[in-house]
């Protein structure tokens, strides 16, 4: 096939997948969150269960005037949502939905992921700075501090996986989780990494991911009750929508990364090789949904931490723990 056609096709498919995923996530958050709060949430939009609420919200946002504060640093202000959105989309480029269903087969997939996902920090900082609003500025700075602090445990948690799998390619990591560990009564048993010694790094990864996403309990950069809306304060209309979609796309993205790295990705036990490309996306979707649900669930239960508590948690607990974790895993890797 023509390389350009292939590229365009991949792009379109990816965009559709990502947008649908984030719209669905928004819907689930609205609906599940409402029920957790003894409400019913969206109900009328779209006829049944209010399924069209995210679309209706989106349509409403698009109609809003695209305002920029008078003293805003306009080019930067305009650009910031694109940077965030790009980083969110970039994550999906390398996540394998099946052995062959992947946007770009990179040998250094993990490396690319970590790089592109921290790109959003730049967008957030840009938004915070250029809004010419003190609340936005504080929010942006908080976000920057937070992203720097949590990037490290995140990377360290991933490094543990890379050591165990012995590869940086995401497909390689999934394959490693499907390798037969032992045979039990004639059945070949393969276990995802979370069951084979990566429990600690899984938790560290999820904590760090939630912090990167700046969602409750780590939503200080937005912190509605403190900073009105943090770096989002001044955004309206389509730019706000982009931040919003970007946030949910990143939620899905990070859940997909976690599912791939720790929960076996598109693979499932007893899945015949030939089915992997067909059933893979569904299996991954299942795992991702579970993780996304937990993130939503947490949001509707817990309050937020304080910025300095978050920092001390990262530097005093998560980083040392993940370093020890790496050491232990490395020792095991060498020993066995």
């Amino acid at each position: 096939m023509n390389i350009w056609l292939e590229l365009a096709l991949t792009l379109v498919v990816m965009l559709v997948v990502v947008l649908t995923a984030s719209l669905v996530t928004i819907y689930v958050e609205l609906k599940a969150g409402s029920h957790m709060q003894a409400r019913i949430g969206p109900y009328y939009a779209g006829g049944r269960w209010g399924w069209a609420q995210p679309l209706a919200d989106g349509a409403k946002f698009l109609q809003k005037e695209d305002l920029a504060p008078a003293k805003a640093d306009r080019p930067v202000y305009r650009l910031a949502p694109f940077v965030v959105m790009m980083s969110a989309l970039g994550i999906f480029a390398v996540i394998p939905l099946g052995p062959d269903l992947v946007g770009a087969k990179l040998d250094l997939g993990v490396y690319f992921l970590l790089a592109i996902s921290s790109f959003s920090a730049l967008g957030v900082l840009m938004a915070g700075w250029s809004s010419a609003n003190k609340y936005s500025l504080i929010g942006g700075l908080r976000a920057a501090a937070q992203l720097i602090a949590y990037e490290i445990p995140l990377i360290l948690a991933v490094v543990a996986v890379v050591i165990q799998a012995g590869t940086m390619s995401l497909i390689g990591i999934v394959d490693a989780q499907q390798a037969t560990l032992f045979t039990l009564g004639g059945i070949e048993v393969a276990l995802p990494f979370i069951l084979t010694g990566q429990l600690v790094s899984f938790f560290i990864f999820m904590i760090a991911a939630v912090a990167e996403l700046s969602r409750i309990p780590f939503d200080m950069p937005i912190a509605e009750s403190e900073l009105t809306m943090g770096y989002l304060t001044e955004y309206t209309g389509i730019r706000f929508t982009m931040f919003f979609l970007g946030e949910y796309a990143t939620v899905v993205g990070f859940s997909a990364i976690a599912a791939t790295l720790y929960l076996g990705g598109y693979g499932a036990p007893f899945l015949p090789e030939s089915m992997a490309n067909v059933a893979g996306p569904a299996i991954l979707l299942l795992k991702v949904s579970a993780l996304v649900f937990v993130i939503i669930w947490i949001r509707f239960t817990w309050p937020r931490l304080r910025e300095d508590q978050l920092q001390s948690m990262a530097w005093r607990w998560l980083i040392p723990i993940s370093l020890i974790n790496i050491a232990v895993i490395a020792v095991f890797k060498v020993a066995f």
Binding site: H35, M36, Q37, A38, R39, I40, W297, I298, T301, W302
Partner: peptide
């Protein structure tokens, strides 16, 4: 405490919401 709270929200979620339509 964190997980007890999560159990409570989950219980609320599966219960019928006390809402008058």
């Amino acid at each position: 405490g964190l997980f007890k709270g999560m159990a409570l929200t989950f219980k609320t979620m599966v219960k019928k919401a006390p809402v008058t339509m």
